[in-house]
Design a protein around this nucleic acid. Structure first.
Length: 226
DNA sequence: CCGTGATCATAC
DNA sequence: GTATGATCACGG
């Protein structure tokens, strides 16, 4: 039997539910959800995120939508170290490589996903057994105008390259806060893109990721507000 | 294969 | 030490 929670009908309800997870260990939460507790995340990289989705009643599925479409809220776990600093970049969504002419920042998937995020900091310390790690203090975040402009600038730079057939020349070093990196099941995954001479080429699918400097600033803004 | 959830692990 | 490029699992 699968553990299901009804999808929250308000942001307040979602926040209350998220707050109740604070301090709970992954072992406790796995038991409640009737989930197998892996020893590590080597072969279960998305385990924590999916478990927490279940606890919060996120709509299942892999649609390119927010986790709580009716509330306009996206859920993101953020693994942090002992000092509360992000341990990983944050995946946002797949990067469109084809038919990009009608796309702009305002209708982009990146903006939609990041317009309102329920961040769930989690203990990401590898030295701590997975079962003993705990959920941190969740918080709801909307980008400031400044943050959104920075993201838009990066997004436009990346999309220009893609539109010009330069996807293969994009590296993760580009973009101040938003980077593009491969995103695939393995090296055999291929998708179509525009090549340097406007022809179709096959490339590894790409995804948008937030660099750690960006999520670190969000954490500081929220927890170290002076 | 695509998009969801991400972390792994090696090159730097 | 850490970021980049690679990879893992799953539902559809």
């Amino acid at each position: 039997m699968r553990y299901t929670v009804p999808t929250p009908t308000s942001v307040d309800e979602l926040l209350q539910r998220a707050n109740r997870l604070t301090g709970q260990s992954f072992a406790q939460l796995a038991k409640i959800a009737n989930l197998h507790m892996p020893n590590d995340l080597k072969k279960d990289k998305g385990w924590v995120g999916m478990m927490l989705e279940q606890h919060l009643g996120a709509s299942a599925g892999s649609k390119p939508l927010q986790d709580f479409p009716d509330l306009g809220v996206e859920l993101k776990t953020l693994p942090v170290d002992e000092q509360g600093q992000p341990l990983e970049t944050t995946f946002v969504c797949v990067a469109p490589l084809l038919n990009t002419s009608g796309l702009n920042w305002l209708n982009s998937n990146v903006r939609n996903k990041l317009s309102c995020v329920l961040w769930l900091p989690i203990d990401g310390r590898r030295a701590v057994p997975l079962a003993k790690r705990v959920v941190g203090q969740p918080f709801l975040w909307r980008p400031t105008n400044e943050q959104e402009q920075a993201l838009q600038s990066d997004w436009e730079e990346h999309m220009d390259r893609i539109a010009l057939g330069e996807v293969e020349s994009i590296t993760a070093r580009q973009g101040e806060f938003l980077q593009i990196r491969p995103k695939a099941a393995d090296g055999s995954a291929l998708t179509e893109a525009v090549g340097p001479n406007g022809q179709m080429i096959q490339v590894r699918p790409r995804g948008f990721y937030l660099k750690k400097t960006f999520t670190r600033a969000i954490l500081e803004q929220v927890f170290n507000a002076v």
